[in-house]
Structure formats: C-alpha cells, structure tokens
C-alpha cells in the first residue's frame, strides 16, 4: 500500500462491551493456539496438583509410620484394646483409609473435569 492512508470510520458499538467473535475454546485447543494451550495447561496443572496432594498425604501418613516407629521405640510396643498398634494400623485401619482417599480423589478429579468442560463449552 502506498500514498496517504485511507480514511477510516471509527464507531462505538451499541453494547457496552466489545463483542468478540464467537469462537469455541475447543477450537483454540484443536488449533493449539496460545489460548488453547493456557486452557490445557490449567487442566493438567489442577489434576496434577490434586494427584500430588493425595501422594503427599499418603507419603506423610504411610511413609511417616516406619520413621515414627524408628524414632519412638515405645510405639513399637504400644497396644490399643489389647492389639499391638502396628498390627492394628497395618493389618486393618490403613485399608479403609486407602478407600476414603481414593473416593475423595475421584470426586475432586471429576469436579475438575466438569469445571474444565463448562469453561470450554461456555462460548459455544
């Protein structure tokens, strides 16, 4: 283009906010645009954070037990209701704890996915 710039007509939209062209986020993801990547990264990060939270809880509760038994020798001998504490925990209570952790994780993970789906489908 050469010469004087052409005249441009500038007008204000009727609505207060500028209107974006309706472009579903799924297309941003499909075309791997910067925006699509941001959405994907946020989903992966929230799921990873959730997974690592469960692993940390597991690490502290389960991984802490041998250390606790090692540091506090009295606990190795401790009895609860006639049963040795170590056996009560490791041969009993730890299993319902696993199921609870798993159940909680599934609820949270499905919630993350629902939130993501709503976010992505909103503009359709």
């Amino acid at each position: 283009m050469s010469g004087r710039p052409q005249r441009v007509l500038v007008t204000s939209p009727r609505t207060r906010a500028a209107r974006r062209p309706r472009r579903p986020v799924t297309r941003e993801i499909d075309e791997q645009t910067g925006l699509g990547e941001v959405y994907m990264r946020s989903l992966i990060r929230s799921q990873l954070r959730l997974g690592l939270t469960v692993c940390t809880v597991l690490g502290v509760l389960v991984g802490g037990l041998p250390l606790l038994f090692g540091l506090v020798p009295e606990l190795r001998e401790a009895r609860v209701g006639g049963l040795p504490l170590a056996w009560l925990l490791l041969a009993g209570l730890i299993y319902p704890m696993f199921v609870l952790c798993g159940w909680w994780y599934v609820r949270q993970a499905e919630r993350n996915e629902r939130d993501f789906a709503e976010l992505v489908d909103r503009d359709r």
């Binding site: 959730l50 597991l58 056996w87 490791l90 696993f98 798993g102 994780y105 993970a109």
Partner: peptide, 24 residues
C-alpha cells in the same frame, strides 16, 4: 513378623498411586 505387613499394604496402596497419577 510385623515388617511384612507392609507387603499387602503396598500392594493395595500401589493402586491408590495408580489411581491418582495414571488411571484416567
């Protein structure tokens, strides 16, 4: 004795780690 109780605990807990990091 008691130390071997960790085997079944780990064989179950492995599924919890699998659940949160790998399954879906």
């Amino acid at each position: 004795g008691a130390d071997m109780l960790w085997l079944p605990v780990g064989w179950t807990g492995g599924y919890l780690v699998l659940l949160v990091l790998v399954s879906a």
